[in-house]
Design a protein around this nucleic acid. Structure first.
Lengths: 252, 252
DNA sequence: TAGTGGTCTAGACCACACT
DNA sequence: GTGTGGTCTAGACCACTAG
């Protein structure tokens, strides 16, 4: 199976991976310690550690912290429909936040906290929103949880002229029907989206917020909403890269 | 800037990263060797190596191979429109393969090689294509290059009943107008897509094909095409995860 | 208190690709 | 040849956490 000259650390890695795959090590259970693995395979602790690091980047086990050790991660792949050709219009007007409705219908328990602030727009935001660099923009920062675990962060930026039309945006409480529906009521109906998807390593701050290790990468989804070819909002959602499947349903 | 108890290896990493950012180390230039870095910062070679490994996973430098050393990578982010609300219909009927037309209009030089085979469908393909597991399906494997460099692999799977309608699919030569346009001529017009996007670590074989190191992750884009709510083709495109920005333009 | 992962050192051997 | 990165060893110290 393995190539002739495979590195030594692939042996412990393959063994633990197989233990997980077969169910011998169920989700949540303790992974053998580096020292135990080293003894078992007759390798140094560094080699055993490298094997486990491999499984961490594969998302199979947690990084482990001091005495707590490493555990087998729950392999719940979250499938999110980022666009749905029929119900998109329904979602933005149904009076329910899309995140809440999507995850609830999947049998999960979502939650979110909201913070409002006004910041100077970084270059990439200014470019998408077509405002001057360093211009003031309003931000609604949402930290979303799923079944009590941190799932993603969603920061929505609005040009200031939009907030004068829809001042509720600056209110740090939940907007029951969703901000998009509220904007539509004021004549700012989102007519089209552009999503830009990038996959990168997190900054230390992002890694801390999402409670992931630096080895795991993240998916940055930047959604810009337009009305009359004019950008009116931008949402950057950061997902842990290995637990998410994004789906787009589009007419041809 | 750095936290108080930052690991030692962040120092060489930060220094080299800054050299690249400032242009002191331009794309294509040689990165200092592990041994030189170790001397310069008074650390062991392992620590210097760890610093450079960090930059590899960030996509800033190449992994390096024996005497060739490591080079600063060309930071060309390739932006691909995976869906465009207006020109989608145009692309599938214009008589030009979408990959060729998109990259050519961006001023790049695309190329691709094609292999045809018939295989038993793995579970996940059988599920999307709604055929029996292990049923025979036809595959067109394309290895695509951009300016001479390997860019991505695109494997398109067709249920066998489709190939009886469009036997040209089994011909291992380029289909000038594109397979989708040809299918449309035979009454199999793709009416809608579903794209499923996942980010994961590559298998050793995938890493070899795409000529990337195992540390870098890949984007797997699985596009299933439907006509009359029936799946008629599935394309799995594998991109090196850190060089690609996928964009979806969708009506709301 | 004891054991864990995180980090670091100072060596070493190897395959490989440039010269 | 010669220097490179890839790998491996056998130690070590530390912060942290569970019991």
């Amino acid at each position: 199976m393995a190539p002739r000259n495979a590195p030594l650390y692939t042996q412990p890695a393959d063994w633990v991976r197989e233990q997980i795959r077969s169910g011998e090590l169920p989700p949540g259970s303790e992974v053998p310690t580096e020292r135990d693995l080293a003894d078992q395979f007759g390798v140094s602790r560094a080699t055993a550690a490298r094997a486990l690091d491999l499984l961490v980047t594969e998302g199979l086990i947690s990084p482990g912290q001091s005495r707590a050790g490493r555990q087998v991660r729950h392999a719940e792949l979250l499938a999110i429909y980022a666009s749905r050709s029929e119900s998109m219009d329904h979602r933005t007007t149904a009076g329910v936040d899309a995140w809440v409705s999507d995850t609830t219908s999947a049998g999960r328990s979502p939650g979110q906290t909201i913070e409002i602030s006004v910041v100077h727009a970084p270059d990439w935001i200014a470019e998408w929103l077509e405002v001057e660099p360093m211009a003031s923009v309003a931000v609604r920062r949402r930290l979303r949880t799923l079944d009590g675990q941190i799932s993603n962060t969603a920061d929505t930026y609005y040009p200031m002229w939009v907030t004068t039309e829809v001042p509720e945006i600056l209110d740090p409480s939940d907007i029951p029907q969703g901000a998009l529906a509220l904007m539509a009521e004021r004549g700012l109906r989102t007519e089209s989206y552009v999503d830009a998807l990038r996959w990168r390593t997190p900054t230390p701050e992002e890694a801390r917020t999402l409670e992931i290790s630096q080895g795991v990468s993240i998916l940055a989804q930047v959604r810009t909403g337009y009305t009359d070819s004019k950008p009116i909002h931008l949402t950057r959602t950061l997902w842990p890269g290995d637990t998410i499947e994004l789906r787009y349903e589009v007419p041809a």
